[in-house]
């Protein structure tokens, strides 16, 4: 293939001379030397080695020896130059160790809501909850009826709920879900108890966007249904969650409340220290909860005499705003890099 041992040896000699004469007094010409002769890809000696297979069989051994000797020589020259450059104060003066390091990649980041959502779901995951999801677009039955909302409940009003144009003259039936609770219904319809699930997701309110309200936000829903589940189990789970999320010494309050789909219903408050507040802080509501209403169990075909269960739901933005002292909810959806870079 046009390659002969003679040509190879001639080239080797030329290179050998060049190696001898090489000026190796700065880090950059040492590096240039390395690349030129023994660079992994296109170093001259490396290239010569690649020619060996093309030589007649009987010459290959000689060629190998010649090239190996050349490589050794180049390596030895390089090594001594390296050593010299390290020990020689004159060469060191040419390196400026205070120059900034070379940044080859931008820094990425997860959105704070993703971070908060995963912090929440991770805690429940460790407690044995599985993750479930459902659609953001829902029908009236899953979002309201099956969850024991009466026919004339104010949440069904156009004012609060975002309905979808179905191009049909009837009552609007499709909406953007107002809470993650329909995931409870979908899961209980599709599978058999026991259930122990956590459902993170986006929910909608038909609201004008201001610093304190947005037309959508994120929630995490929890559901446990089995034989023998009690409110004591619920309280236990929530307290353990809150301590894992807010810290072991968090001050908690569990108070009665009302939701159509749970009974008894309760809200969990945490005491939030505010140095400027006259009382030194105040109670902040962080989640709603309760025992699954028997009407809900019946709606999904479960016998409330046999099964009991609990459900809970919490917003994600509010606690995040509390934790990071964010005063304007819109920041989450404006995606200003100066905001995103802080998480």
């Amino acid at each position: 293939m046009g390659t002969s041992l003679e040509r190879l040896i001639a080239t080797t000699e030329e290179l050998s001379t060049e190696i001898l004469r090489a000026q190796l007094d700065t880090p950059s010409n040492i590096e240039a030397f390395r690349i030129r002769f023994i660079g992994q890809k296109r170093g001259l000696i490396t290239q010569l080695f690649k020619q060996i297979p093309h030589l007649p069989k009987e010459d290959r051994r000689t060629a190998g020896q010649v090239l190996n000797a050349l490589r050794k020589k180049a390596q030895a020259t390089l090594d001594s130059a390296h050593q010299k450059s390290v020990s020689d104060p004159v060469n060191l003066s040419e390196i400026d160790l205070t120059l900034p390091g070379r940044k080859n990649q931008w820094t990425g980041s997860r959105h704070p809501i993703t971070l908060a959502l995963s912090r929440i779901t991770d805690i429940f995951h460790r407690m044995g909850f599985t993750i479930a999801e459902g659609p953001e677009m829902e029908d009236d039955w899953h979002n309201f009826t099956a969850l024991n909302f009466p026919e004339d409940h104010p949440a069904r009003d156009m004012q609060d709920t975002l309905f979808i144009d179905e191009k049909s003259p009837d009552q609007p039936r499709i909406m953007m879900r107002t809470h993650t609770s329909p995931v409870q219904i979908r899961t209980m319809m599709a599978e058999e108890p026991p259930f122990r699930l956590i459902a993170p997701g986006r929910v909608y309110r038909n609201e004008t966007i201001t610093y304190k309200s947005y037309c959508l936000f994120h929630q995490v829903e929890g559901l446990v249904v089995d034989e023998g589940i009690t409110m004591a189990d619920l309280k236990n789970t929530l307290y353990r969650f809150a301590r894992a999320f807010f810290g072991e010494d968090v001050k908690l309050r569990y108070r009665s409340s009302f939701f159509p789909f749970t009974e008894p219903s309760a809200e969990l408050d945490i005491w939030w220290n505010l140095p400027d507040h006259p009382d030194g802080g105040r109670w902040m509501e962080i989640l709603g909860s309760g025992m699954v209403h028997p009407n809900v169990l019946e709606a999904v075909g479960l016998d409330p005499e046999r099964y009991t269960g609990y459900a809970f739901g919490m917003g994600v933005e509010r606690p995040a705003m509390l934790r990071y002292d964010i005063k304007d909810i819109r920041l989450f959806y404006e995606n200003d890099v100066r905001f995103l870079a802080q998480f």
């Binding site: 980041s109 997860r110 809501i113 599985t130 995103l340």
Partner: peptide, 29 residues
């Protein structure tokens, strides 16, 4: 419970993309 493949896959994508210098955003639906 076994982590769902969906969650593992998404987590993998998050790690990859943030490692490659992308910032995650949340925009209005």
């Amino acid at each position: 419970p076994r982590p769902r493949p969906a969650d593992l896959l998404r987590e993998h994508a998050h790690i990859h993309l943030t490692g490659h210098g992308f910032r995650e955003i949340y925009t209005n639906s």
